[in-house]
Amino acid sequence: MTAFFFFPIAIVVLISASLVIFFRNPVHSALSLLLTFFSLAGLYILLNAQFVAAIQVIVYAGAIMVLFLFVIMLLNLDKVKKERERHPLQKAFGILIASLLLVVLGSVIASGILYGTKGIYTVEKVAAIGNTKAIAGLLFTDWILPFEITSILLLAAIVGAIVLSKKEL
């Protein structure tokens, strides 16, 4: 049942993620990335992580995507395209590094599937109390300090954006 949905969604994820790189037009890449975010949300739902799936859509497909679109809008891309030069050895280095990465990843995969130590929150337990409640129960009690620090991180983002983009402070 899960496999019936997993494989089509996983194929969409892989194809759309590759297209992000292969499209020449940055707007097409951005749209492809949007499809990747949405299909990843589907994978999270299959993992019984509904809250993470909702966050994936709200934060990634909603907010992070806005940032990508702004980078596309703020840069003058027609000009960038003309000025872009290709290094003669660019392709050779790319192939070299990609094959090295293949060796590293291949040796890890060949050594067998790695399992981490299991925590107390098993799939059954999370399903019983609900994904959102399980996350909230930990975030607002055991992980209160990282949660409060997040607000300082967001505050720094506000100040940084204003300092960088305002002409006169």
């Binding site: 934060v59 907010a63 806005v66 949660f147």
Partner: peptide
Amino acid sequence: KFFIIAVLFIIFDIEAVFLYPWAVI
């Protein structure tokens, strides 16, 4: 100026995301 509005939107969007699990418990 569009960029400032977008960044402010992202920050308060993430704030709202934190409010949701908080409201559950």
